[in-house]
């Protein structure tokens, strides 16, 4: 495997950023999914050799990325949020990094990498004049310039418009199809889903789910969900009508609202319209409760703890 993370923990003082994280990744794209602060950037930083784990070990192409600098001849990294040298043009910066990584013809390699990310026309502009999206593409170009076998991409789609996102995904997908091992982090499931057939989910520094992206998505889809229904009048008749429905796990009444727990929102929608007609209740609004990422991750965390027990 190109990437091996073995029982890795990383502490910052009393704060545990990563706790006993283990997984492997080989050729193709692996998504690293997690909310902000989950430990994604810390993990990528360890794999890039920017820092050392407090416990455990990381290997990239069977090398320790912190100690063995030769790893960088076959490793490309797009760090999160930071730009390249603002006083250089994109061509100068990418050429310089190609030269430092031992590329035979740095100028030609830089031109090819900048063309691959669609920056040929802007290659001779200073990076300080770049928009955020162009900066992201320049960062990807420097990561690709030495044609690495392993790519670590930390939130690479941040700051990109939809067309740029599509282009970035195409570039990464092509590299993966050619045999490159790509580990890409994101806090947005559908972004990862578009790129990665396999995903590792991190919550509060722990791996809470790992496997095929479609499986993780199904897991999330099947979890219990809460729907809030607002009615025009007293909703108790509607609550009674819904209580026996197969899709309903529990119903709570609050003034003019009902909170309904279900594992099948689609079937609940059908039951709800029938129950509303039967109980002559006018519906004012229907909205999901806790559909944010935090609640999804909380569910996965609770599930992981349950399976651990």
């Amino acid at each position: 495997m190109s990437i091996v993370v073995d029982h890795v923990s990383r502490n910052f003082g009393d704060t545990v950023a990563l706790s006993h994280v283990s997984f492997t990744a080989g050729p193709g794209i692996t998504g690293l999914l997690g909310h902000n602060g989950a430990g994604k950037s810390t993990l990528l930083s360890l794999l890039a050799g920017f820092s050392s784990p407090s416990e455990g070990s990381v290997r990239v192409n069977d090398r320790d990325p912190k100690r063995d600098l030769a790893v960088h001849t076959d490793l490309g990294v797009v760090p999160d949020g930071q730009g390249l040298w603002h006083h250089l043009t994109a061509r100068e910066a990418v050429t310089a990094l190609a030269r430092m990584r031992g590329v035979g013809d740095p100028s030609a390699a830089a031109a090819a990498a900048l063309a691959e990310v669609g920056l040929t026309d802007a290659a001779d502009r200073r990076l300080g004049q770049y928009s955020k999206g162009m900066g992201q593409r320049a960062k990807l170009a420097q990561a690709l310039v030495h044609d690495p076998g392993v790519l670590l991409l930390d939130e690479p789609l941040n700051g990109l418009d939809p067309a740029q996102r599509r282009h970035m995904i195409d570039v990464v997908t092509r590299r993966a199809a050619a045999g490159c091992t790509v580990l890409v982090s994101s806090h947005v499931l559908h972004e990862v889903e578009r790129m990665a057939p396999r995903v590792v989910v991190l919550v509060n520094g722990r791996v809470v789910a790992e496997g095929e992206t479609s499986g993780i998505k199904a897991l999330l889809r099947d979890r219990p969900q809460t729907v809030r229904v607002t009615t025009a009048a007293d909703p108790r008749a509607l609550a009674s009508a819904l209580a026996g429905a197969a899709s309903t796990h529990a119903v709570r009444v609050h003034d003019n609202t009902l909170e309904i727990e279900t594992s099948d929102p689609e079937q609940l929608g059908q039951s709800l319209s029938r129950a509303a007609a039967a109980s002559r209740t006018t519906l004012r609004g229907i909205e999901p409760v806790g559909e944010d990422l935090e609640s999804l991750y909380a569910y996965l965390t609770a599930r992981a703890r349950g399976s651990a027990r």
């Binding site: 920017f50 600098l69 030769a70 949020g81 930071q82 430092m100």
Partner: peptide
């Protein structure tokens, strides 16, 4: 401060 040191760090050039 500007974290461009991360780019110097991702090269095989001896520290």
């Amino acid at each position: 401060d500007e974290l461009t040191i991360l780019y110097l760090a991702q090269t095989p050039v001896a520290r």
